[in-house]
């Protein structure tokens, strides 16, 4: 065997091609099925947009979409503020407690989501058990699982992602800028709003976008802490899927895929532009 003939092995290329086929075959089949008048993907009947029409007439999906977006917006606002604050504190801290604080912010990222979901459910159940009656008689507050507990849970798992993205940005930050501002007589607050904040802004925006996407995508944690009647889009899809493969979900999947393609395309372009400048 000559060395030259295996110099550039084609094997990695074939694996990449296989991965592409593996990743896209199911998605392409869903896309094709969404335009098929037949209920089953196996036999092609004729081209039809009826599943898209049906999608737009399914009120439950729109209701679930509104819930999803409201939860995602609230979770994004709170988790972005809390995550950014903790990143700033972590970045500047020289305290001995820093390690504990860091673990508290970082470990939710590695805990499987089912454990975050169940542990928060247990907290809410315990609080309702221990001081539910007491709170109701004293303040007229009724504690129950619902949209509030879902938002609390989403803030909790999103804020770690925001904190890590902002912390990454802060680590690249040139501290001499801060010293320069202070040498020139700027106060702490002035420096923060006119130097630190503009520099870490891209990190905050990226973290917020990340939080928003994660919140929209979440099923498991929501499922554990939601109240009986609440639906979000993932909850709706899951309950529809339990009864088989309703074709209206094909149409919904295609819309989701197009949105994702658009978003990834735009962010990739923005990133590569940012790099070349």
């Amino acid at each position: 065997m000559s060395r030259r003939c295996n110099r550039n092995s084609r094997f990695p290329f074939y694996v990449l091609m296989f991965a592409m086929v593996f990743l896209y075959t199911p998605l392409v089949m869903v896309a094709v099925a969404s335009f098929n008048a037949s209920k089953y993907g196996g036999a092609w009947k004729e081209f039809s947009l009826k599943w898209y029409v049906q999608l737009f007439h399914t009120g439950a999906i729109w209701e679930a979409l509104v819930n999803t977006l409201v939860i995602a917006l609230l979770a994004t606002v709170f988790s972005t503020v809390l995550g950014t604050l903790s990143a700033l504190a972590l970045h500047r801290s020289r305290s001995r407690l820093k390690g504990i604080y860091y673990a508290l912010v970082h470990t939710p990222l590695v805990v499987p989501d089912i454990l975050l979901g169940i542990s928060m459910l247990l907290l809410f159940v315990t609080v309702m058990d221990v001081c539910g009656g007491w709170l109701e008689s004293l303040f007229g507050l009724r504690l129950e699982l619902g949209m509030t507990t879902v938002v609390i849970a989403h803030v909790t798992f999103c804020l770690s992602y925001v904190a890590m993205v902002v912390l990454g940005r802060l680590k690249e930050f040139d501290n001499s800028l801060l010293e320069a501002a202070q040498d020139l007589g700027a106060s702490g607050l002035y420096t923060f709003f006119h130097v630190t904040l503009p520099v870490i802004m891209p990190g905050i925006v990226a973290g917020a976008l990340f939080a928003f996407t994660l919140s929209i995508d979440d099923f498991v944690i929501t499922f554990f802490v939601k109240g009986a009647g609440d639906t979000t889009l993932p909850i709706y899809i899951q309950s529809a899927m339990r009864r088989g493969t309703p074709p209206v979900l094909n149409a919904l999947s295609v819309i989701f895929l197009l949105l994702t393609f658009g978003l990834v395309f735009v962010t990739q372009n923005l990133l590569s532009k940012g790099k070349s400048e």
């Binding site: 089949m29 869903v30 089953y40 899809i237 989701f256």
Partner: peptide, 24 residues
């Protein structure tokens, strides 16, 4: 990256369609 950002449930749904007993 696109499948990574696509809704988790949509990805599982695609496999249910793909492996469906009446599927292609």
């Amino acid at each position: 990256i696109v499948p990574f950002w696509t809704n988790f449930l949509i990805r599982i749904y695609a496999w249910k369609v793909f492996l469906h007993p009446h599927g292609a």
